[in-house]
């Protein structure tokens, strides 16, 4: 069961404020979802199964070369010096 405290903790680590309405209805909805995925517990944990679909060889990796475009990547909250202005830290 997901308690209200659990929900608040999950919201905190996910950095999401929940509305009153969501605080009200989410515990039940999330419970149902978790109950639904709980069926996975029936599966044995067996390390012998290779979990990975894709592999890359070393040779296929990107060469260490510089290539830059002049496009401005960030457009908002930029100071005259070029810094990005963020919220206060303390």
């Amino acid at each position: 069961m997901i308690s209200k405290e659990d929900l608040e903790h999950l919201a905190q680590i996910s950095r999401i404020n929940l509305t009153e309405n969501e605080l009200e209805k989410f515990p039940k909805q999330l419970d149902k979802t978790i109950e639904y995925i709980d069926i996975l517990e029936e599966l044995a944990s067996d390390d012998s199964v290779n979990l990975d679909l894709q592999e890359l060889t070393f040779e296929e990796l990107r060469m260490d070369e510089i290539s830059m475009s002049d496009d401005k990547q960030l457009n908002k909250n930029i100071t005259e010096d070029g810094f990005l202005r963020g919220p206060k830290m303390k």
Partner: peptide, 10 residues
């Protein structure tokens, strides 16, 4: 104006 903000450089 800037005291309360962080200046970020990526």
């Amino acid at each position: 104006n800037v005291r309360n903000t962080a200046l970020i450089d990526y």
